[in-house]
């Protein structure tokens, strides 16, 4: 089972990201579960969403405290919360950032990092800086958690006429994501 914790701000669509990934996995016959950090929706406040994908039925309904990977939709979160809390040693920090790999390595020492300027891509491809679908491409690039084309069905079902723009955004993010591997032995 792979566990992913998504960090964003209320209104940025972290829950939708988790949902699309779960639907992509279920669509190819895997088991998956996606859910929000339950609570009142507070626009702009730090929020979490959770994703589990497994070959076997998932029998776990608590939050994810030791994720295999994390996704950070909003780089400004780093000032207020520690998204990497509990992240497993070989896990990926998949982050929307325009910072360099060296800068981010200082913030997440010892972790693999996947970096994409999703805000920039989303603005160009979608016209709005909503990064939730763009970041799907970065996660897939870093982890291969689902195949990129498995996302298309759920994204089309969800977004209708604007689906193609979202597909363009995550496909571009997939290409532009930079992978910075942690050094062995750390």
């Amino acid at each position: 089972m792979i566990e992913v914790r998504l960090h964003g701000r209320g209104g940025q669509g972290a829950v939708t990201s988790a949902e699309l990934l779960a639907q992509a996995a279920i669509g190819i016959g895997q088991y998956a579960q996606a859910f929000p950090s339950f609570g009142p929706e507070r626009r702009g406040a730090p929020v979490q969403a959770f994703l589990r994908i497994s070959e076997k039925p998932i029998r776990l309904r608590s939050k994810i405290y030791k994720p295999d990977n994390i996704i950070i939709l909003d780089p400004t979160l780093l000032g207020s919360v520690n998204p990497a809390e509990g992240l497993k040693q070989n896990g990926f920090v998949v982050i929307n950032s325009n910072k360099s790999g060296d800068e981010l390595k200082k913030i997440f020492p010892g972790y693999n990092i996947a970096i994409v300027d999703a805000s920039h891509i989303a603005k160009e491809e979608l016209g709005v800086p909503i990064t939730n679908t763009t970041m799907l491409g970065a996660l897939v690039k870093a982890t291969g958690i689902v195949a990129l084309d498995a996302l298309e069905g759920p994204v089309r079902a969800r977004f209708g006429i604007v689906a193609q723009k979202n597909i363009n955004a995550y496909t571009r993010a997939y290409k532009e994501t930079k992978i910075v591997k942690a050094k062995q032995g750390k």
Partner: peptide
């Protein structure tokens, strides 16, 4: 059915 831990979960 349990609120949130069941009601709000996306699952197969």
């Amino acid at each position: 059915l349990d609120g949130f831990s069941l009601s709000h979960v996306i699952e197969p």
